[in-house]
Amino acid sequence: MSLEVPKKLEREINRLVKNYPEKRSASLMVLHALQEEFGYISTEAEEWAAARLELKSINIHELVTFYPMLRQQDPGRTVVRVCRTLSCALAGSAKLHGHICKRLGLDADAPGLQRTKDGKYGVEYAECLASCGTGPVMMCNDDFYENVSNDGADEILKKYDE
């Protein structure tokens, strides 16, 4: 089974590849683009990227398994990432994470990304999101939220509910 890549994305990827003297360099950017389109990077997507960049599939697989932001399975439509590193932890990120998990009916103590059954949300801890002065912070997909209280989290999640 091979991957169907929309023409628009293909053009975008062609543009990205041209930014680098060596095709392999574009790996990460291509993977980002593919993930944006498909939600995660499937085996087919890995193989497609490898073929596009004239690499072996393992070269791409090495990257996908290394970077936590690249997903091998569907992480859910909205990925909620709560920063767990020191400053945010001091500001109460564990409480925030617990609250979000409770609201979405997930196990807060389970390791790794937890996905709701309906596939709407995936919740996970993230390492430092670099806004330590305004903890606790979290990201919902590409959107960034600071000073998130439990109530604030409810408000934010409402936006992504539909």
């Binding site: 680098y20 360099s25 990460l28 990257l63 970077y67 932001m69 690249l70 993230a126 430092c128």
Partner: peptide, 12 residues
């Protein structure tokens, strides 16, 4: 001069 933005993917 060309400047391009390259995105990482979560690695310290």
């Amino acid at each position: 001069l060309e400047i391009h933005v390259h995105r990482g993917a979560g690695a310290y």
